[in-house]
Amino acid sequence: MPAEIYLNVAVNGLLTGLVYGLMALGLSVIFGVVRVVNFAHGEMMALAMYATVAAFTSLGLDPFLMLVPVAAALFVLGYALQAGVINPFINRPEHSQFMLLVAVAIILVNIQLIVFGPDARSVQTSYSFDSFQIGKLIVDASKVYAAATALLIAGALFAFFRFTILGKAIRACADNYAGALVVGLDVKRLYALTFGIGAACVGAAGVMLSLVIDVTPSLGPAYTLLAFVIVITGGLGSMPGALLGGVLVGLTEALAGLFYTPSAKGMFAFGLLVLVLLFRPQGILGKKLG
């Protein structure tokens, strides 16, 4: 095979990987602060994708116009979920929280199935088939837009946690729960905000991903798993780690599809996860466990 094919596949994998990274960033932020693993993460993303597809097919709205409304809607969903359902579970054992989110996931998947049916849906924009050509390298325009947007949102999120008072308060909760309580932070509200922010991230990622792949109800559970693979590879709770993990998984999937067979690409992603868990359980950029 000529070298440019590898390069093409790798660049496409990298771009998809950045969108994966944004999705995983949401999971990572939620886990890093609230210490709850969102087992309904992929299902929330599928919800965002369906919203985008519905807005496009019925109202003709471009996915980029939907970015803010969908992210806002998922923020509200995430906030409500944390405030109403998960907050009372904060001190419960892990398996208990897990069951709770599994229940939420089951509900979300099946609402999608009822409303949209089992068939794949997609968005066909005017630029769906556009591509950029740089020398022998050809990349889909949609993927470039999606990846650029994902990077932009991730950057905004970094800035939020680094420079705003609210972001710092949330980080304080993550570092020291008791301390945050002592200095008078409303931890439960901050948790709800965090879950909302994480959900908004995955919502934005869903809008972008709808440019790249079709959505079916079964996508949700698959992407929940993919998000786990990504954040654990990159380091659960580490924001740059989520992006790095997304890129690595995107690349692994793309190259596995090229060298072996596309249907087995998931095996390589999971293989990567097993290796990381065994040799660097805190993830590539994660802090030491303990």
Binding site: V37, F98, L236, M267, F270, V274, P281
Partner: peptide, 21 residues
């Protein structure tokens, strides 16, 4: 290797998925 808690749970999912594929 000290894989425990959430990480252990996700490892078990990963191995099952690996087997599935």
């Amino acid at each position: 290797f000290g894989v425990a808690g959430v990480y252990f749970a996700i490892l078990t999912i990963a191995v099952a998925e690996f087997a599935r594929i």
